[in-house]
Amino acid sequence: MPETTADGHSGGMTSTILSARSLSKRYGASIALNNVDVDIAAGESVAIMGSSGSGKTTLLHTLAGITAPDAGTVHYAGTEVTALNETQRSKLRREAFGFVFQSGLLIPELTAIENVALALMLNGVPRREAEPQAAGWLSHLGLAGMEDRRIGELSGGQAQRVAIARAQVTGAGIVFADEPTGALDSHTSAEVMGALLGATAGRGRTLVLVTHDPTVAALCSRTLYMHDGVLSLSPSAPPAPTQLIPGASGQHAVPSPGMAAHPSAGQFAAGQFTSGQPISGQNWAEQP
């Protein structure tokens, strides 16, 4: 049996794409991250749950290079993110990461297709090449015919699918999502999660997601919990030991019985997204 890390990641089976060690972050007197270790494998979908103020968004921002930790390191695909300066981190986010936030991500003046194409244009792709790729992704996500609508003319679920298209159009190897369904009703939430998982884990890409919603977390392949800045595998048990060293004894986050009722990432991929080929991070120019 392969060795597992304390954060539930089974080392050896798949390659680790994102790895954090001894992350600490304080905001004044409050501790947002307390010596957090975590490994995330390529192609998995990881949900981070926790109450408000538990530090889950700080962890997501630190892993994504948005926030610099007070101490500790983050490595992404061999690059030490925490050693990069602000401009380099910005470039990494632009080129290698995708983001889906609860709101405020899309530019209201731009049309759906322009919002998606912008991600490619920021990487130097001319608009005449970026827009056909953007249109392909919008179409894949069920938004064909809505390319020229402004964001205000789309529903919440449609706007989130535009954000997913934008996160994926560059061929980002990993997508960070912060409460992507937070502002949606349960039906739309399921649709958006389907689209998100299909576009990421369903295509061999990695998804790291922060959510309050256990239903959303249950759709992911692994769930981690934050309690007062400490990462744990249990939703209710006292925080796990602060030193979550890879190779130490631990356990996988076991799916709850209710989870079986929800489709897996693979099912989403097999259903809505079978037509698309998995895309390597470098081949985004060949996007649909």
């Binding site: 921002h61 470039k91 986010r93 632009r94 983001f99 936030f101 405020g104 991500l105 209201p108 920021l122």
Partner: peptide
């Protein structure tokens, strides 16, 4: 301001 913060997080350079 919210939009600018989001764009910054997405990696849009400040120069743009």
């Amino acid at each position: 301001s919210g939009l600018y913060v989001s764009l910054d997080r997405l990696g849009m350079p400040r120069s743009v």
